[in-house]
């Protein structure tokens, strides 16, 4: 209001509200100032960045049951690639893209694992980054840190989490995380859960050329530091400890490869007032970049 008592009309705001902005993940319209998509809770910053920078980021995901180490893997991967230039370098786009790296690294430096990713999609961390490779075009990628429980819930009851379905439909490739320590202990549940995941992907888009059977899938054995043989030959490990999964991916996925990764050198348990807590005794990453590198190379230009 000015001194004459005239109210200035911000009419341009009405124009902005009249035009909806499409969510980059699910495609539904939102107000221009929405922080999260009201349909799928993905950050609208992804859509704004894509529009303002005239880029079309590809989507990749780390998926797997709860407790397989998706958050640790993604946090470690983003931190390692942001600290080095070979074989590739990762540059975060937007402050929100650094949150996952920050929280994961802070926890690991204290010799703790990061807290479990909440089931609510509005509390997930999303990473939008640029991947630089020598003599190749930079790749724009979006990687969310999905909650394992939500993911399995969506698989058991499709359409429970719209964001997961929308994201996986548009995803260009995934890294499927498998708990190697559980698999080695003979826990067949691990095998079944991953089989469900792969089946879900194949059902999601069954087209032979553009569907999941033709998209690249890295099958990553996590916590391989607890079973050293896994590092020597991940595929052999898969045939011995997750035979169902091995047969399924051989028949259904034309572009897949097995990998083994480890972050903690060794682990122990500490009694806290809220219960027994699994803690790493030191951090020594092994094989972290390879699954991601293969996936990015397989995505093509």
């Amino acid at each position: 209001m000015n001194r004459n008592g005239v109210v200035l009309l911000d009419s341009y705001r009405l124009t902005q509200y009249a035009e909806s902005v499409c969510c980059y993940i699910c495609g539904h319209g939102n107000n221009f100032d929405a922080e999260l998509c009201r349909h799928c809770y993905a950050p609208m910053a992804l859509a704004h960045q894509a529009a303002s920078q005239r880029i079309c980021p590809k989507m990749v995901a780390a998926i797997g049951p709860s407790g397989t180490g998706k958050t640790v893997y993604l946090g470690m991967l983003t931190d390692m690639l942001s600290r080095q230039t070979e074989p590739m370098q990762l540059l975060a786009r937007g402050a929100f893209s650094i949150a996952l790296q920050q929280t994961t690294m802070a926890a690991l430096a204290r010799c703790e694992f990061p807290n479990k990713t909440p089931n609510e999609p509005d509390r997930w961390n999303w990473v939008h980054c640029q991947v630089l490779r020598k003599h190749k075009r930079p790749a724009e990628l979006i990687m969310p840190d999905l909650a394992g429980e939500s993911l399995m819930e969506e698989i058991e009851h499709p359409n429970t989490y719209a964001v997961i379905r929308a994201f996986l439909e548009r995803c260009s490739g995934v890294m499927v995380m498998i708990d190697a320590a559980r698999a080695q202990r003979g826990d067949s549940d691990e095998d079944f859960q991953i089989m469900k995941l792969v089946s879900y992907l194949c059902e999601l888009n069954p087209d032979q050329k553009s569907g999941w059977s033709a998209r690249p899938v890295s099958l990553v054995f996590t916590k391989a530091d607890e079973c050293e043989r896994c590092f020597e030959d991940p595929q052999l490990f898969a045939t011995q400890h997750t035979p169902g999964l091995f047969q399924l991916v051989r028949e259904r996925l034309t572009r897949h490869r097995f990998f083994a990764v480890g972050v903690a050198g060794t682990t122990g348990y500490r009694n806290e007032f809220f219960g027994r807590m699994h803690v790493p005794l030191r951090i020594e990453p092994r094989g972290i970049v390879e699954p991601f590198q293969w996936l990015v190379e397989s995505l093509g230009p």
Binding site: E86, Q89, K134, H135, K136, R137, P138
Partner: peptide
């Protein structure tokens, strides 16, 4: 090789 790509990013020398 660099002629092939317009937006080629030159990375700093290998840290290894």
């Amino acid at each position: 090789e660099e002629e092939k790509f317009v937006n080629v990013v030159e990375l700093t020398p290998a840290p290894r």
